[in-house]
Design a protein around this nucleic acid. Sequence first.
DNA 1: GTCTATAGTCGGATAGAC
DNA 2: GTCTATCCGACTATAGAC
Lengths: 189, 189
Amino acid sequence: MSTPKTTAERLVEATRELLWERGYVGTSPKAVQQAAGAGQGSMYHHFSGKPDLALAAIRRTAEEMGAAAEAVLGGEGSAYERIEAYLLREREVLRGCPVGRLTMDPEVIAHPELRAPVEEVLDRLRDRLAEVVREGLDSGELRASIDPVEIAATVVATVQGGYVLARATGSRAPFDSAVRGLLSLLATP
Amino acid sequence: MSTPKTTAERLVEATRELLWERGYVGTSPKAVQQAAGAGQGSMYHHFSGKPDLALAAIRRTAEEMGAAAEAVLGGEGSAYERIEAYLLREREVLRGCPVGRLTMDPEVIAHPELRAPVEEVLDRLRDRLAEVVREGLDSGELRASIDPVEIAATVVATVQGGYVLARATGSRAPFDSAVRGLLSLLATP
DNA sequence: GTCTATAGTCGGATAGAC
DNA sequence: GTCTATCCGACTATAGAC
């Protein structure tokens, strides 16, 4: 039932994988072409160049991340349960975050068009988490001494930093530790 | 009173700066030479190549980070105060963490010698923070429902993830939010 | 120790044929 | 749309003179 993928599709998917693994600086058009099984001419027919290709890839990756987060945060359960579900959601921890990773790339940060999707999706995620925390505050589920905006930032930062620790050690253990530590702090009444 | 810097010194310092800004993949020997004011021959006289140079730079950067952390965590004050001091310590937030940044570099992760200093310093930092949390538990300063190892991971992850958020938005605000959020969770009795 | 010369490969793209 | 040819600079060295 799946439509056979177009060349443009394959190029974007290949770019997404390579950006995730090697970043913008470490990803060459030639590597993308090989991974996608497309020739030079083909690539430059569909995209104006590396930045154009990267933009399409980054946009799609950001979109997917936003949708995955919303699926959990907009789901069933109490505020705490939804935050917990977000934190415990399945992740390929050792590969790092395909979006967060881009923030360490100097070229992405230097070019506003490339950075925009990254900034937007992370901002939206924090906003959405702050809403959920606010709900928890209103219902008395979370203690009143915390600030929704701050806690939202702490939650996202814990996840992003968890990736860093996991990759440093080559094991997902510190990611899981960091998340459990945060949950224990949030759970305390 | 400062000894004039040797060429080898200048090469290592230049490499440290470039690794911080552009990562291993994005840093070329030529760029290092220019930043250090050294010629090709000179660089290859002192170092066997890019990996050798990077190793020296990474080791020194990790060492400095370890020392800076210990200065704060081994200082005066209660357990909470020292954790707070660690979290609030001055940082060039928008530049990211010179050590954590390396975990997103595929070449660093792929080469055990390059990854080792990164892993070691982050492991030691977590161990040291866990000790401090344990002290706070023993003294009753922190609540008994938390696990020192987990909280240590949460603290380091919050910092590392804070850098990601700050770079994504181009502002240190989310870093500060994340840290304050974590402190508010830790402070609650 | 430092310099210049040389070399092979890759990066990022353009041109034009099919 | 896709292919091949071509281009020029950058990357990562090695060689040998000074």
